[in-house]
Design a protein around this nucleic acid. Structure first.
Lengths: 249, 249
DNA sequence: CGAGGTCTTGACCTCCCTCAAGCCTTGTGG
DNA sequence: CCACAAGGCTTGAGGGAGGTCAAGACCTCG
């Protein structure tokens, strides 16, 4: 027992922002140390979200943003006639709920694709904190404009590209984002189904499956269910005709 | 000459925000009168933009937002391989440049589709002003989240809808936004070409033209070049299967 | 008035969707 | 721990919506 303190401060227990391994990717980009500590005060305890559960649903009142700590989410839009569109996949270090920021209710639904943990950032407190830290406001602007640019990149994909190009862009985007988080850029486990990929890319699940098979036959990738290995990154990039910008999140 | 003052104050000359007929649609939504006057101070003289000219181009440094005073813009994204995607059409009372807010350079290009006038809102001054008027920050959040939601609505359109539905959604959206500005909801003059409509909706110009013709044959609309008359609004709405949300800007 | 851009329409073709059948994976309960 | 069910994936065959190519009509503006 020696050397171990009886009492661990709450602050340590939840290993807040200053210690978070995601702080480069997440919110406190460019904040001074004491500012980050202030922000940390605002962030409530980490919240677990079980696979399949909704973090929030479209129409629910907006109170907080959520930073993904671990795990993987999809966000979806439900049209009135039942058609569902996946609008994004979100991994550690990314912020959920920006499409409701400033408004009163969530516009999309966020579903956990595996067991996840998120940090809750109550908007009220962020709002008052940003009066003390002006750069925080600016950072939110930046995050939101990045989201707009990301969506517009996807519009370009949906409006102009053929199935092969869409899948190539999708794989490269996943690879790049995983690499930025310290994972392998060349092999990964997809958390979403073919149907969800298809919805995101404006394709049917059969087309996704067929195109993966074709990529495999051409030696570009290796597919084993949800395990994907990128065998020839350059060839995949060539499929895009050097078209899509990096489109990082 | 009698009764006409020799000197008209600059403030009057440019008939600022407090007197602007667009103030309901534009920025100062929900500001107190004196706050609006403060904001007005920030807004530089109105700037004319000739048809075909760019208000800003992708890659240029971001300094200001622009409020459309009169006229009609398109925003486009240029992929590296030359493919161009129209990401939006913008009319009086709408704000341009939100996709660069907080960042350093514009992400898209804004082209005037007719002779236009815009109000310039230098970001530096908006930024400092929002320290005095906290609700201004909140309003920008709202505008940006609305833009995100708008883009996501378009993603749903691009990912799920067939040509007829896309055109119907487009026509209804135009009709609604024009009506909100005091114009007729049932007849209007399109400022953009079929190719630009097609790019926006993820279709080829021939498909746009053919679909318009089919709508006309079915008695839904009357087409005379760029003049469009909506003859049967309800039938057009039915085409959507009550799908797309209003998607106002 | 003429030139260039814009629009319409036709014919053909391609890519992706639809429908269908069967296999594989995952999770659950006996 | 195995069996079975249910969801997820693959693959094939066929069809249709929209793309491509082409020709000609129609504006519009210098």
């Amino acid at each position: 027992m020696t050397g171990i303190p009886d009492f661990i401060p709450l602050h340590e227990l939840r290993s807040g922002c200053p210690a978070c391994s995601l702080r480069e990717l997440c919110l406190p980009l460019g904040l001074a140390r004491d500012e980050m500590a202030q922000l940390d005060e605002v962030i409530r305890q980490r919240i677990p979200v079980k696979r399949g559960e909704a973090l929030f649903r479209a129409g629910q009142p907006f109170h907080s943003l959520y930073a993904v700590r671990t795990g993987f989410f999809k966000t979806t839009l439900l049209a009135e006639d039942g058609r569902e569109q996946v609008t994004g996949f979100h991994m550690a270090g990314e912020l959920l709920g920006l499409d409701a920021l400033g408004g009163t209710q969530h516009a999309c639904t966020a579903i956990a694709l595996e067991d996840c943990e998120v940090c809750e950032l109550p908007f009220q407190q962020l709002d008052s904190l940003s009066r003390e830290i002006p750069s925080l406001t600016r950072h939110f602007y930046k995050l939101m404009s990045r989201e707009i640019v990301r969506d517009q990149g996807l519009m370009l994909l949906l409006g102009n590209m053929r199935a092969e190009e869409r899948l190539a862009a999708f794989l490269l985007n996943m690879s790049q984002r995983l690499e930025a988080r310290g994972f392998s850029a060349k092999g990964f486990h997809l958390r979403m189904t073919r149907e969800e990929i298809g919805s995101y890319l404006g394709l049917k699940l059969e087309t996704v499956s067929r195109t993966f098979s074709r990529f495999q036959a051409d030696g570009l990738i290796k597919v084993q269910g949800k395990q994907i290995d990128l065998l020839d990154l350059n060839a995949i990039r060539l499929l895009l005709g050097a078209c899509a910008p990096s489109e990082s999140h």
